[in-house]
Design a protein around this nucleic acid. Sequence first.
DNA 1: TATGAATGAGATTTCATTCAT
DNA 2: TATGAATGAAATCTCATTCAT
Lengths: 205, 205, 205, 205
Amino acid sequence: MPPIVSDEYKQKKKREILDSAQQAFGEKGYQVATIDDIVAYSGMSKGAIYNYFESKEDIYVQLMNLRTERTFEFFEESLKEYKTATEKIKFLFKTYADVELNEDRQKSIQVHVEFFINSGRDAEMKKLMVDRFKDIYQKFLIEIVEEGKKVGEFGTHVDSNIISSLFWGILDGVCLHYSVLGADEYPYQDIMVEAEKIFMQYIQK
Amino acid sequence: MPPIVSDEYKQKKKREILDSAQQAFGEKGYQVATIDDIVAYSGMSKGAIYNYFESKEDIYVQLMNLRTERTFEFFEESLKEYKTATEKIKFLFKTYADVELNEDRQKSIQVHVEFFINSGRDAEMKKLMVDRFKDIYQKFLIEIVEEGKKVGEFGTHVDSNIISSLFWGILDGVCLHYSVLGADEYPYQDIMVEAEKIFMQYIQK
Amino acid sequence: MPPIVSDEYKQKKKREILDSAQQAFGEKGYQVATIDDIVAYSGMSKGAIYNYFESKEDIYVQLMNLRTERTFEFFEESLKEYKTATEKIKFLFKTYADVELNEDRQKSIQVHVEFFINSGRDAEMKKLMVDRFKDIYQKFLIEIVEEGKKVGEFGTHVDSNIISSLFWGILDGVCLHYSVLGADEYPYQDIMVEAEKIFMQYIQK
Amino acid sequence: MPPIVSDEYKQKKKREILDSAQQAFGEKGYQVATIDDIVAYSGMSKGAIYNYFESKEDIYVQLMNLRTERTFEFFEESLKEYKTATEKIKFLFKTYADVELNEDRQKSIQVHVEFFINSGRDAEMKKLMVDRFKDIYQKFLIEIVEEGKKVGEFGTHVDSNIISSLFWGILDGVCLHYSVLGADEYPYQDIMVEAEKIFMQYIQK
DNA sequence: TATGAATGAGATTTCATTCAT
DNA sequence: TATGAATGAAATCTCATTCAT
C-alpha cells in the first residue's frame, strides 16, 4: 500500500515549520525562542514538529540552508537579465537596500546575522558556516568580480577574494546595525546607496 | 555604622566581576553563559556577584558601558597625537586591524556585536543601544569627518552622518565575519587594509 | 459482510507481532522498548499493531502467555520420552543449560525474568503472574516431584511445594545472572551442571 | 571564609536523597519512578536533588554502590563472631531469610535485582555490574569457601568459583520470586531454609 | 484492514535568583 | 559582606495512542 501522505505534503509541512521558526527566531532570537513559540506560530502540536525535525538545532540548520538556497536561487535567476558585472553588483546592493520595504526579509536577515554569531561557538556549526561562506557567498561574488576584471570593467588592483569578503562584510554590518537600530534611527537605504558608491568607485576603472 | 569597605574596594570588585563576565560571555555568548560560569571565572561566590549587580542583564549592560567607555577613552587619548582627520581615521582602522593580535580584544568585539543583536529584541535595551550609537559612536566619528571637511581633507560630497554609519557598519561587519570564520579562513588584516583604502579613497579630495 | 480475512491470517499476524515484540523487549527491556521498535522489527505499521492488540501492556501480557504456553508444550512433549522423575528433572536442567547455545532463547528468558520484576508492581499483573506461577510452573514440577516420591526415587523428606519453588528460583536466579554478566564472565553451563548435582543429590535417596 | 555547610551535612543530604530514591525505585522500579517521585519522598525540591547528583542514572549508580557497601560492611562486621566457614555461610542464608521481616530490606533487594536486569542493557552499566559481581560478591564468598575447603569443612569436589556463583544465583532467584509473588503466595523463609540445607549438604564433608 | 501523521501529557534537566547563616 | 544550598518555573524532547484517509 502506498504512503497515504505524499512527499509533497511533507515538504509543505517542513516549509510551514521552517517559516514558523523563522518568525519565532526573528522575534526573539534562536536562544530565546522556544519550541512552544514555533508551535504557537505553526498551529501544529509539539509532537508534529518533532516528526519533521530532530531537534531545535536541526530546525535552525535547515532554516539556514533553506534561506541560503532561496537567496541564491533568487540571485541567480535575477542576475540573468544583467549583462555586466557592474550591473550585477549594483543589483545586489539594490536588493539588500530594498529589504527595508519587506519586513519578512528584514527578519530573515537578522536571523541570518544571528546564525553567524552563534555558529562561531560550536565547532560543527562553525564548519557549516565556513563552508557556506566559502562555497556559496564568496564563490558567487568572486565569479562576478573576476568577470568584471577580465572584461576590464574593474581595475587589476582588485583582489577578488579580499574584495568579496569585504562586500559581504559591509552588507552584513550595515544590516546588523539596521536590524538593531531600526528605520527610525538608521537611514538604511541611504547608507546602502552610499555603500554602493564607495564600493563601486573603488573597484571600477 | 560606617561603611566597612571603601568605594574603591567596591569598584575593584565590580571590575573583577565584569572582567569575568566578559570572559564568560566571550566564551559562550550571553544567553548560553551562566552565572556559574562567571562565578567560575571570578573565583567569587554567587551571592557576592548579586551584591554588586542586580541581575545577569545588569552585568551585561554595565559591561557594555564599561567597554564603550574604555574604548573611547583609549581613542580620545590616542588620537591626541594625530593632527589631521585622515590620520585619525587611519588610526581607527589600524586599531581594529591590530585586534587580530590580541585575543581578549577579539572576544571583546564579538561580545559587542552580540550586544547589538540581542539589544534589538528588548525595548529598553534597544533604547540604550540607540543612544549609545548616536551619542558616542556616531558623534565621535561625525566630529572627525566634519573636521576633515572643514579643513578640506574630505570632499563636500561626504555626508558625515551617512558616512559615519557606514564606517561603523563596515567595521562591525568585518569583525563579525572574522569572529565567526576565524583567522584560518578569513584574512582579517588584509580585509581591514582594503576597507581603509576603499573608505579613504571615497571621502578624500 | 463476512470477514474478509481468515482467523488463521489473524493468528499469523499476531504471532508475527509477538515475535517482533520479543525481539524489541529482549533488546531494550519492556519499559525502554517503544512501539516504534516493534514496528521496526515487524515491518508493519503502528496502526496494524493496534488492530491486533489493545496496548503495549496487552502485547506484553500476551507475549508472556505465548512464551509460557510454548515452553510447557515443549516440556510436555519432550518429557514423554522420559520415564522416571529423575530423568525428567535432569532433562529440565539440561534444557535450560543448553539455552546458552541459542541467543533467541536467551533473550526470551531475560524477558521472562523482567516480566517477573515488573509484574510485582501492578496488582492486576501480579495476579496474572501469581496464577501462572502456581497453576503452571509449580503444578508442573510438583507433579514430577510427587511422582518421584511415590515411586521412591526421591526421599520423603522432600516437600514438593518448597522444593519446586526452589527449583524455579535457582533456574531464574542463574539465568538472571547469566543474562546480565554474559558468557564471557559467567560459566553458565558449568553452573547449571552444578545446580543439577546439588539439587538432585538433595532430593534423591 | 570556610564553607557554611559541612561535608557531614552534604553527606547526610545525599543519604536522604538516596533513601528517597530507594523508596521510589522500590515502589515503581527505576524506569517508572520519576524524579518527582524522589522529590515527593525526600521533601526537597527538584533543584536540590540535582545539586547533589548529576542525573537520575547517577542516583541509581550511587544507590547501587551504597547498598553494596552497606551490605558488605554489615556482613564483614557480623561474620567476625563466626569462626567456621559453615557458620558463616549459614549466617548469610539466615540474613537473607530474615529479610522477610523487614520491608525496607525487602525493597532494597528488589531494587538490587532490578539493577541486575537493567545493567545488562547498557555497556557502561554492565561493566560496573560485572566488576561489582566479581570483585565484591564472588570474592567475598570464594574466600569463605576456600577457607572451608582448607580446613576440611567442605569437600575437595567443591569448585569455589562455580559454587559461589551458584550461591548468589540461588539467593537472587529466590528473592526475585519472593519480591514478585509476595509473602502470601511464597513461603519465602521455608524456601530459604531448604536452600540452605541443599547447599550445605552438597558442599560439606 | 492498513497507514503513519498528529497529539499532548509528562519526563528529565537547567539556571537565575533568593536567603539563612 | 560573603556564602552556596535551595528553589521552581520553564525548556527540550519522548512516545503510547488515536484517527482521517
